[in-house]
């Protein structure tokens, strides 16, 4: 791989990264700031698509596909159904902001930022390696690991999903006056 080729690869990588991250963070702000729940759910869909593209940029193709299929396709549809079913009204106002709450928030925010800075200063500021072949993120590689090394957690996670389904059905079908 020539030096010029590597440089252009890094350049286009940077352009894609900044575009996608700006899009993702912007729509994430939309999730938190939207007054109507339906807009918040739709901006979360946009955030998840941005994140899936970042996964592709990182070479994690299988995870990106799963992100679109499972998150945007299944989980967010569930959210949309509940929003339509419950006919949620707009939130009147966020919680009251007293001076004590502001002070506590400031202290915790400063602690979070300093902790983040401390954690980031641990890692060397080295570029992500441009691998010769980005094989390690394909469905084949993930499947190999999943069914050999991680077979027990994989089977247990199917139990977890089953418990989730049964729990949701039991909770949603129960009549309240029977209890």
């Amino acid at each position: 791989m020539g030096a010029l080729h590597a440089t252009t690869l890094y350049m286009s990588d940077a352009i894609w990264f900044y575009t996608l991250t700006t899009f993702m963070v912007g729509s994430a702000l939309g999730v938190v700031l939207a007054r109507k729940p339906i807009y918040a759910v739709l901006s979360l869909v946009a955030t998840l698509f941005g994140m899936a593209s970042l996964f592709i940029l990182l070479g994690a193709f299988f995870v990106a596909a799963i992100q679109i299929l499972v998150y945007a396709g299944a989980i967010l549809v569930l959210f949309l159904f509940v929003v339509m079913l419950l006919d949620l009204s707009d939130e009147a106002a966020p919680q009251k902001r007293t001076l004590t709450l502001r002070a506590i928030g400031f202290v915790f925010g400063a602690a979070f930022i300093s902790k983040l800075y401390f954690a980031l200063s641990f890692f060397p500021n080295s570029p992500l390696a441009i691998h010769e072949s980005m094989k390690y993120g394909t469905a084949r590689e993930i499947g190999k690991l999943l069914f050999t090394v991680y077979w027990l957690p994989f089977e247990l996670s199917s139990m977890l999903v089953l418990v989730g389904i049964i729990g949701a059905v039991v909770l949603a079908k129960r009549k309240l006056d029977e209890s």
């Binding site: 994690a60 299988f62 995870v63 799963i66 992100q67 499972v70 998150y71 299944a74 989980i75 569930l78 959210f79 509940v82 079913l85 419950l86 390696a129 691998h131 390690y136 993120g137 590689e141 993930i142 690991l145 999943l146 991680y150 957690p153 996670s157 977890l160 999903v161 418990v163 989730g164 389904i165 729990g167 949701a168 059905v169 909770l171 949603a172 129960r174 309240l176």
Partner: peptide, 29 residues
């Protein structure tokens, strides 16, 4: 340069799916 992190992402997504199902059922109740 190793796929183990992506396996963890897979498991986190499964847990998130289960959490959302039960959480939304509780919300309806």
């Amino acid at each position: 340069g190793h796929s183990t992190g992506q396996i963890f992402v897979f498991f986190i997504m499964l847990v998130a799916a289960a959490e959302v199902t039960v959480g939304l059922a509780i919300l309806i109740v």
